[in-house]
Amino acid sequence: MSRRVPDRVSDVFNRIRHATQLKRHSVRMPRTTLTVDVLRVLLNEGYVSGVRVLGEPPRQECEVFLKYNDMDQSVIRTIRRISKPSRRIIVSARQLIPSRGGLGRFILSTNLGVISDAEARKLNVGGEVLGEVF
């Protein structure tokens, strides 16, 4: 019997996407190091308004507070997974182009940690493109 390994990044993106479609103000998800790193990038780039860790180890959860504009529309229009377990997308620093002409952000996993494409260009590093948000 094979054991299914969950794709945590897809889980984070799907939970956020579904919560914004339902106009929820917050969403909870299991806390992992990768989850916290991805949420930190979304927080630093202004796509979510806050992140809180709930519970005691080993059953901790992250509560993500979603951000909406004055017309009650989510700041996150689209959030999608690019590199998948079956197909890894790796880019060098020279190959990084701004997402949606600078309106969006790519989230990259680099040797310096999980960072946005803008920070990766500034630090001149490449890595695996986990996803895109705009």
Rank of each mutant, 00 (worst) to 15 (best):
R40D: 08
T32C: 00
E119D: 11
G50A: 03
E56Q: 05
G102T: 11
T32G: 01
P98V: 04
G127F: 08
L54Y: 06
S2F: 13
V27S: 13
R121Y: 01
C62T: 13
G113W: 01
P58I: 09
V91Y: 04
T32K: 06
C62Q: 01
H18Q: 08
K67R: 12
V125T: 04
P30I: 06
R8D: 13
I115D: 12
E128V: 15
G46I: 09
V125H: 00
R88D: 12
Q95G: 03
E119I: 05
A120P: 09
G50D: 09
R88E: 09
R77N: 07
G46L: 05
K122R: 11
V64K: 01
G113I: 03
P6I: 12
Q60Y: 08
Q95D: 12
I90F: 14
R88Y: 07
I97Q: 07
I16V: 10
L39R: 10
R4V: 13
N44W: 03
A118M: 11
N124I: 12
H18R: 10
T78G: 05
I79T: 08
R59A: 07
T20C: 14
N111F: 02
R15E: 08
R94P: 06
G46S: 00
P85T: 04
V9F: 06
S99L: 15
G46M: 00
Y68N: 14
G50K: 03
I107Y: 06
S99N: 11
R31A: 14
L123P: 07
Q60D: 02
S99E: 15
R81M: 09
V48C: 06
F134A: 00
A93Y: 14
G131I: 08
R8A: 11
F13D: 05
R121D: 01
F106N: 10
V48M: 08
F13P: 06
P30H: 01
R17G: 14
E128N: 06
I97V: 06
L108I: 08
V48Q: 10
R88I: 15
G131M: 10
A19M: 02
D7P: 05
I89P: 01
V48P: 05
A118G: 09
R87C: 12
N14C: 15
G126M: 03
R81G: 14
I107F: 01
R28G: 07
C62M: 02
L66P: 10
G127P: 02
I107N: 06
R17F: 09
V91M: 04
E119N: 02
L34C: 06
K67A: 14
Q60C: 04
R88N: 05
H25M: 07
M1D: 12
L39F: 02
I107T: 04
E119F: 00
P58W: 01
Q21P: 03
C62I: 15
L108R: 00
F13H: 04
L130A: 08
S92T: 15
L39N: 11
I90M: 11
V12C: 01
S92C: 10
T35M: 01
R15A: 14
I76G: 11
R77C: 12
V64T: 13
N111M: 10
L39K: 11
F65Q: 11
N124R: 15
R81Y: 02
Y47K: 00
S116H: 07
R87K: 13
A120I: 08
Q73W: 13
G102V: 02
T33K: 11
V53G: 00
C62N: 08
V12P: 01
S2M: 14
I115M: 13
V53W: 02
E56F: 03
L39G: 14
L112A: 12
